[in-house]
Simulated assay, not measured.
Amino acid sequence: MKKLIALAGVLGLAMVAPPTMAHHSFAMFDRTREVTVSGTVREFQWSNPHAYIQLVAKDARGNDVEWSLEMGSPMYLYARGWRPRTLRPGSQVSVKLNPLRNGDNGGVVLEVSDARGNSIGTNQ
C-alpha cells in the first residue's frame, strides 16, 4: 500500500512539473540582443507569476506604441528592492531589455532607470 501511495505521489508531481518548467522558458526572448526603450509607464503590474511594465514609447514615426515588458516574480523583485508602487503611471523610464524574437513590442527586463538615469531596483 505504501508503494502505491508513493507511486501516486511521484506520478502526480511528474504531471505538474512539465507545465511549470515550460512556463519559465525564455525561448520567446532574443537573449543575444539588448535594446533600450524609453517612455511613460502606463501600468506597473505587481502580479504572480511575473510582474510587468506596460510602457508607452514613440516608434520611429513618432507614434505611441505600447510595450509589454516582463519581469521576475514579485518575491524575486522584492528581494532586489522593488515594491508594488516602485513605478507609478506617468513615470518616465528607460528600460534595457531582451526583445521578443517575433518582433512584437515586448521583452524581458534587464535594467530600469529613471529620467535622470538612476537605476531603479535591480532586476538581476
Rank of each mutant, 00 (worst) to 15 (best):
P18D: 01
K3T: 13
A8T: 12
M28R: 15
P18R: 04
L7T: 14
H24C: 00
P18T: 01
F26H: 12
T32N: 08
M21D: 10
T20W: 14
V35W: 07
V16C: 04
A8V: 12
P18K: 00
P19K: 02
L4D: 11
E34W: 06
W46Q: 02
A17V: 15
I5W: 10
T40N: 11
A22P: 02
M15P: 03
S38W: 05
G12E: 04
R42W: 05
R42D: 15
A8Y: 09
F29D: 01
M28Y: 10
T32C: 02
L4C: 09
A6K: 08
M21W: 13
M21V: 14
A6C: 03
A17N: 09
S38T: 15
W46E: 00
V35F: 09
G12T: 07
E34P: 03
V41L: 12
S38L: 03
V35P: 08
V16A: 12
T32A: 14
L4I: 15
A27T: 00
R42C: 05
W46S: 03
L13Y: 08
T36P: 10
V16G: 04
P19C: 06
P18Y: 00
G39S: 05
W46M: 02
A27M: 00
T40L: 12
W46H: 01
F26V: 08
M21T: 10
T20Y: 15
L4W: 13
H24Y: 13
F29I: 04
V10L: 14
A17L: 15
M21N: 08
V35L: 14
S25A: 02
R33Y: 04
A22H: 10
A8R: 09
A27W: 02
A6Q: 09
A22V: 11
L11Q: 03
F26M: 11
K2N: 11
L4M: 14
S38E: 10
V41R: 12
A8S: 13
R42Q: 15
V10I: 15
L13Q: 05
E34R: 12
L7N: 05
E34F: 05
A27H: 07
V41M: 13
T32P: 00
R33A: 13
F44H: 05
D30Y: 00
D30A: 02
F44P: 03
V41P: 14
R33P: 04
G12A: 02
T40H: 09
K3A: 14
I5K: 07
V16Y: 10
Q45W: 07
A27Y: 00
F44N: 06
R31I: 11
R31M: 15
E43D: 12
R31N: 03
L13E: 08
